[in-house]
Design a protein around this nucleic acid. Structure first.
Length: 271
DNA sequence: AATCTTCGCAACCGCCGGAGC
DNA sequence: GGCTCCGGCGGTTGCGAAGAT
């Protein structure tokens, strides 16, 4: 039994990097018909690509609003925490970073963060330490799988800084001919002082996050709404988040989370 | 300057689950 | 209920770029 791969029967199906011309054809089609029904895309566009390839190209590269380039420390923190909570559920993690694709996050984890976390595991440096009373060390933080570990990760979320969500100078929004579709999300700003001591090296980072202000209006992206809550100290929020992460009541939990998020943005949690 | 090695990212592969028949 | 189709996901690979020798 079993179904052959969707592209197995494709005689002359092109593989490899996409050309700008192919990108234009694909985007033009999606602009007219909208994403979805990927099976029909190669048939109707004449692209010699399989449907999966079209979908991947769209979701990972051509989709409007994708941010490319270096991840901010804030994004890194979210990825690390969510990976600790969820494991390699890249799609779920990506849902908290709407401007990043799951593929991007996965690649970034595999090429950067995994090494960083591994290095931290083997060293006494307390990367995430914020206050002596509730410090979370790297060594006890990333022991995978256990509830204890998850709770620790969630606890640590209270301590992780919310840095500016505004596009950093290093991160760039994908540059393609279709940027006009993009709806730039309002910048969420936060005043957050971070003393980075060899952040990318083996040293510890001492983080001071005071007088945080979160700006933006009600149209903030889900990330911008959720992130302050994640970073804030809300027990209720974490219960909901945990429920959701554990897939007990995904819909209810995320609804509740979003509700709290909205409230949070109206009345931001201060550190 | 040439060659080798490492790194980062785009894309592919195979599996899974939901929907429709 | 079983089968097929299709979209989605996570793991892996291949290749070009960058760095090291």
């Amino acid at each position: 039994m079993g179904r052959p791969p969707c592209c197995d029967n494709g005689v002359g199906v092109k593989k490899g990097p996409w050309t700008p011309e192919e990108d234009i054809v694909l985007v033009s089609y999606i602009q007219q018909h909208g994403p979805g029904n990927w099976r029909s895309v190669p048939e109707n566009t004449g692209l010699m690509r399989c449907s999966k390839s079209c979908r991947l190209r769209w979701t990972n590269y051509l989709r409007p609003g994708i941010k490319r380039g270096n991840f901010t420390p804030h994004e890194e923190g979210i990825i690390i925490h969510l990976q600790a909570l969820l494991g390699n559920k890249w799609a779920a993690i990506a849902s908290y970073l709407p401007q990043r694709t799951d593929n991007d996050i996965k690649n970034y984890w595999n090429t950067h963060l995994k090494k960083k976390v591994k290095r931290l595991q083997t060293q006494p440096a307390e990367y995430f330490q914020t206050t002596p009373s509730n410090a979370v060390t790297s060594s006890n933080y990333y022991s995978p799988g256990s509830t204890h570990h998850k709770l620790q990760a969630m606890q640590a979320m209270n301590n992780y800084p919310t840095c500016s969500s505004a596009p950093s100078s290093e991160a760039t929004t994908v540059s393609n001919p279709f940027q006009t579709w993009m709806t730039p999300s309002p910048a969420t700003t936060a005043t957050c002082k971070i003393n980075m001591q060899e952040f990318h090296g083996e040293g510890a980072a001492s983080i001071v996050c005071k007088d945080q202000t979160v700006g933006g209006d009600d149209k903030s992206s889900p990330l911008e709404m959720v992130a302050p809550v994640i970073m804030g100290s809300s027990t209720a929020t974490f219960s909901l988040l945990e429920d959701w992460l554990l897939d007990d009541m995904p819909g209810q939990a995320i609804d509740g989370l979003m509700g709290i998020s909205a409230g949070c943005c109206a009345d931001p949690i201060m550190f």
